[in-house]
Design a binder for these strands. Sequence first.
DNA 1: CAATTAATAGAACGATCGTTCTATTATGGT
DNA 2: ACCATAATAGAACGATCGTTCTATTAATTG
Lengths: 186, 186
Amino acid sequence: MSKKRDDIAGAANRLLYREGFASVGIDRIVAEAGVALGTLYKHFPCKEDVIVAALLHREAGYLAALEQEADRGGGADAILSLFDRLLDWAEEEGGNGCFFLRAAADHAEPGPIRDVALAHKQRMLRLIENRLCEAGWRASLTSRLTPSIFVLLEGAVAAAFTLGDRRAIAAARDAADLLLCAYPGE
Amino acid sequence: MSKKRDDIAGAANRLLYREGFASVGIDRIVAEAGVALGTLYKHFPCKEDVIVAALLHREAGYLAALEQEADRGGGADAILSLFDRLLDWAEEEGGNGCFFLRAAADHAEPGPIRDVALAHKQRMLRLIENRLCEAGWRASLTSRLTPSIFVLLEGAVAAAFTLGDRRAIAAARDAADLLLCAYPGE
DNA sequence: CAATTAATAGAACGATCGTTCTATTATGGT
DNA sequence: ACCATAATAGAACGATCGTTCTATTAATTG
């Protein structure tokens, strides 16, 4: 709601994604946001809450971009376009992998950060399920296909990140295509 | 070569995998290894090198376990057994995901840690390729199947980690099975 | 046994970083 | 113009943690 608060969340989003959670401090975030240190602590009680805000900030843009894909076709393309988005992001953002997976990896103990990461992944599962359903797959098939598509998406980002090579995303897309053809809908 | 050095690497492996790279300090590692602080710094110049040793220590056990799988069958089973190993590890180790992926995620800047993580992933790619080749797949098919199988393995660990649910591994295994049937070898 | 080396416990340093505090300055509403 | 609130710059504190140092004790070898 507050403009400053959103500036901080956006700056944290950019900075933490690019350089990691441990190595970028509060001072870097306030500098990037163009905001004073005291202002940050007026909006957030501690750094952990800034990280949570950064994750939520990213997810908002994430889901918004997925919802309003203009070029998304029907049928299998409704699913395969998810891999194309992944390719776009890998180029734009420098290929630093999944922000939420990295957040979870950095914070082993349970807590709000793990909760946000888990919630995001569950949202992705639902999104896949919905698209399969809308594209005409039967319920029995969607419940079987959804986890497989999800695993391919997760693997695509992870592999592109560690290998530093976007070709893994294309391989995942091909596998998804084959999967969807093997269990056709409509 | 040195026993102490190996103790330290093993302790770091266990501790860092369980609790993460940032949140466990040198003091915790020496305590777990049953070794004095000075001894650690006689064997390693800095913490980063301890982390590298921990990664290499894990990879040694990792590859050793994969090489001498007794129950690994021929054909498609040579590949599918990789997913079964993953299931075992997810149970034994508490499901904290891929150590190497997490190491890369925690260290955004290039350096020895990223190098070890990348080398491990490339080794996994070669392992998959070799198994496909030994199981009788033609070269043109192995080069197409290898990245897809790799992405499924990566996605399986990542998804099981973030969701806290081993069922994702089974979904990946099923998808791999289907893929191997669609492009049969032998 | 002697002598060199490795290992130990623990104090101490230095840097980083999250967080708080103070004093000053801009901002917005009535 | 006035007042309350928010924002700013920057100093300061406290804790953590990687690293070094010292003095003492155990282990090894010739």
